[in-house]
Design a protein around this nucleic acid. Structure first.
Lengths: 144, 144
DNA sequence: TTGAAATTGATAAACTGTCTCAAAATTATA
DNA sequence: TATAATTTTGAGACAGTTTATCAATTTCAA
């Protein structure tokens, strides 16, 4: 466990160094746990880490996840009433086909769509940080 | 004013009828005000309607906007800590470019993306009813 | 018109996320 | 290694947004 995620740990250390921030036991702990996820809420991480460190505060989780966003390791996404923190190194799986009949969710990726998104953004002077694409409809079982 | 938005009013009445709900003065008032907007928060609508009805409660606005979502007239979009309610009837398809700096929203349409969406859906056995595409990033002013 | 059922308005409560601040941990320096 | 300056932490208070509660009012079918 302590020897995984070396690349991300280096990226974090570089960010810390550049901003006069310190490497703490909590930041290491949270980073390693976070990198095992694809996306997670602060609250979920709070409960998950309670075993490893029962006194780890929720505020520290929030602060640290926001720090990861600043360091480019995570991306915050507002979903429903909650904020999910996406693991950037797992990126590319954020589009969804959602069946309104049985609520099944299929994830997909489409490079061509991503390329066209960039094109649209550039045409409007935007630089995209992330996106959300959800297609709602009926899956083959529910159509019958 | 009372004779506009006839189609949407019919859609609302149909939904109310199907669910044993009642048509109230407040629901009519909020519907007419909502349909004049492209997207608005409950809080903004609360202040806007205070002139027309100073005793209209914030909870009623929330309840009614959520009702509109159920009826297919509105769509909730979570942005930052707030929820914006989009007017669905305003346009057939509107996809959004959203600046995470100044919260500016630019609408766009892209036929090619829509076509690719259909393709992805078909490949997975889905029939799309509607979709949502949001691109988050920085507009040209906020990038500097 | 009447009465059962739904709705409203005011406010309390819940929820998510941030702020505060004394105590503790980290890092640079000697 | 010891010291000191600075940052971070944890716990809870706090703030903003949305939902729940409930008595009073309104709607609507009979």
């Amino acid at each position: 466990m302590p020897h995984k995620h070396v690349k991300e740990m280096e990226a974090l250390k570089e960010h810390l160094g550049k901003h006069q921030l310190k490497l703490t036991r909590q930041r290491e702990l949270i980073l390693n746990a976070f990198l095992r996820q694809e996306h997670i809420t602060a609250e979920a991480m709070y409960h998950q880490l309670a075993k490893a460190d029962p006194h780890l505060g929720l505020a520290t989780i929030y602060r640290t996840l926001n720090l990861f966003c600043d360091a480019g390791l995570a991306q915050a996404r507002h979903f429903g009433s909650q904020t999910k923190y996406d693991n950037v190194s797992h990126k590319g799986h954020h589009d969804h086909l959602i069946c309104t009949g049985c609520e099944k969710i299929v994830e997909f990726e489409n490079e061509e769509i991503e390329r066209l998104q960039e094109e649209v953004a550039a045409r409007n002077g935007f630089t995209i940080k992330n996106h959300r694409l959800e297609l709602y409809g009926l899956c083959s079982s529910c159509r019958h």
